[in-house]
């Protein structure tokens, strides 16, 4: 569906995107993850035909963005970082305008606009001026704009930025609902978003891909080494010392009544640890195993590229 080969983009001397190559298959939801300034927006702008890359090729549904920009644009719905809405238009009129602009046939305009309004739950505000709507609603109008021509591919640039937690949750549900109907590429620097809605994640830093995997695979890959959090009522220091003697415990330390223990990841080690804590009569009230979250993976990956 989307094939990107050795994409590079220079802004003057600064290289924003370095030799990016990846593919997105039909129906996939791909998260584009990276810190601010990593080159996410630039890549997305290139995908939509908004700007041309310095070198490299992009093919979308078999059309090259250089050769057939119009054909490519017909197949893409794009929600930029700032929703591209006209403040002096009503929601309804704006969407009609977008539908016409995107080549929806005159007979189909009403039904497309209705469908987009329904998908984004905007029927209540369809007659209101966009300028009078809240940020969350504007964002949804922006998404409705991307959906109005029912494109094969949706490109969403930081769709939840600047929204309040409730609106963020709504936006995520919305994206989940769109799953399966469209191929979606979304960029974000908020990690739970990727975990919540994506099948595949591409982590990018300083213009380069540093990891590309299924979400599950990525966490498995990084999970090596278990991590335990223990809370006791007393003797925390003593417990920490004792635990270090257990085979398989890499490190253990205590702060107040909390203990942090690193193990080699085997379940038997956890069993030994719990036995030991109980036998020491330290008053075990909490024992928690934790795997690395995307957040940790992300920090580790971006840190390691910075060091290297």
């Amino acid at each position: 569906m989307i094939q990107v080969k050795e994409l590079s983009k220079f802004y003057g001397d600064r290289q924003a995107v370095k030799n990016l190559s990846f593919t997105v298959n039909k129906g996939e939801v791909v998260g584009f993850l990276g810190p601010n300034g990593a080159g996410k927006s630039t890549t997305m702008k290139i995908l939509t035909g908004y700007m041309a890359p310095t070198s490299g090729t992009v093919q979308i549904s078999g059309f090259d963005i250089f050769e057939d920009p119009i054909e490519v644009k017909k197949r893409i719905g794009y929600l930029p970082e700032t929703p591209p809405v006209y403040l002096d238009m009503t929601v309804q009129r704006y969407l009609e305008f977008c539908a016409k602009l995107k080549g929806v046939s005159s007979e189909a305009i009403d039904s497309s606009v209705d469908a987009a309004l329904q998908k984004t739950a905007l029927q209540q505000v369809r007659r209101r001026m966009i300028g009078n709507l809240s940020k969350g609603f504007r964002q949804r109008v922006g998404l409705a704009q991307a959906l109005v021509s029912d494109p094969e591919i949706l490109i969403l640039d930081e769709p939840t930025v600047g929204l309040d937690p409730k609106q963020v949750a709504e936006m995520r549900t919305l994206i989940k609902e769109l799953k399966g109907k469209h191929t979606i590429v979304l960029s974000t620097h908020i990690l739970p978003e990727v975990q919540a809605s994506c099948d595949k994640v591409i982590i990018i830093n300083e213009g380069q891909i540093i990891a590309e995997d299924q979400i599950q695979g990525l966490s498995n890959r990084m999970a090596g080494g278990g991590h335990l959090k223990i809370r006791v009522l007393r003797k925390a220091d003593q417990v920490a010392e004792e635990l270090k003697r257990i085979e398989g415990v890499v490190d253990s330390s205590s702060t107040g009544n909390y203990l942090e223990v690193k193990t080699d990841g085997r379940d038997q080690v956890v069993e030994e640890i719990s036995k030991k804590v109980v036998s020491l009569d330290a008053g075990l009230i909490e024992l928690q195993t934790s795997t690395l979250s995307l957040e940790d993976i992300f920090i580790q990956l971006t840190d390691s590229t910075e060091k290297s």
Partner: peptide, 13 residues
């Protein structure tokens, strides 16, 4: 207002 993005990514010349 960044609505230029809309025009440039729409299938128009």
């Amino acid at each position: 207002l960044r609505t230029y993005d809309l025009l440039l990514t729409a299938p128009i010349t």
